[in-house]
């Protein structure tokens, strides 16, 4: 008998003695929040939760998105020890709106299958997002062309993420409902962190150590 058949047979035998009933899952928990996506109170909550996890957030409109992205890049890279004379190298996914990058003086490198080492030579990444969840301060990337493959938002040390305010939902169930499980999904809540030393949280380990979120109204 194959291991597959054997394991399945064992599972069936284990359940045969009492045939446990398959109850319905009571979904009496909150399915959705009180406010519609993009509601100003939701945006405030999202910003509060982001900053609570030491992410940076700024709000802008379509007119000034490029300026805010440029400032997010320069602030995000304003780290001790970084060579400020060389222009920063910023990787972007192929479908990112080009007008978002019109104000930065960085070297913008579109991802056309960069190697891992080439990504490692980049200082930052700018992406869009798929969904944001206000209550938990979470953004989700789904590999769409304005977000790119997973590696580009992982290897560079700065992640600038542009979230349209109408993408912000209140609760986790609303976020899950908007996602396509067939896509590669990355849920991001603040910069990388660890609680492994005395269960005390410190930000910044292997993933991007700095996360800037640009909230784009309208």
């Amino acid at each position: 008998m194959s291991a597959r058949d054997d394991v399945l047979a064992r599972v069936r035998r284990a359940l045969a003695t009492d045939e446990p009933s398959i109850g319905d899952v009571p979904r009496t928990y909150r399915q959705r929040g009180d406010r519609p996506p993009g509601d100003p109170a939701l945006i405030d909550l999202f910003v509060e939760r982001l900053t609570d996890y030491r992410a940076h957030a700024r709000r802008t409109t379509t007119d000034d998105v490029a300026g805010h992205v440029a400032r997010a890049i320069s602030e995000g890279l304003d780290q001790p020890g970084r060579d400020r004379h060389a222009p920063p190298r910023i990787v972007v996914p192929s479908g990112l709106p080009t007008n978002w990058l019109s104000a930065t003086d960085a070297d913008v490198i579109p991802d056309a299958g960069l190697t891992v080492d080439e990504l490692d030579a980049c200082d930052g990444v700018v992406t869009a997002a798929s969904v944001a969840i206000a209550e938990t301060g979470t953004i989700v990337l789904d590999g769409e062309s304005d977000q790119g493959r997973r590696a580009i938002s992982l290897v560079p040390d700065l992640h600038v993420c542009v979230v349209r305010t109408d993408q912000i939902v209140e609760t986790v169930p609303e976020g899950v409902a908007r996602l396509d499980p067939g896509r590669p999904l990355t849920w991001i809540s603040g910069p990388s962190a660890t609680s492994d030393i005395e269960l005390d949280r410190v930000e910044g380990v292997h993933g991007p150590r700095t996360l800037h979120v640009v909230l784009l109204d309208g």
């Binding site: 939760r49 996890y53 938990t136 999904l185 990355t186 849920w187 809540s189 990388s192 962190a193 993933g207």
Partner: peptide, 9 residues
């Protein structure tokens, strides 16, 4: 935490 920093699917 309200949400852990990273979840991959």
């Amino acid at each position: 935490e309200r949400m852990n920093p990273y979840t991959s699917m």
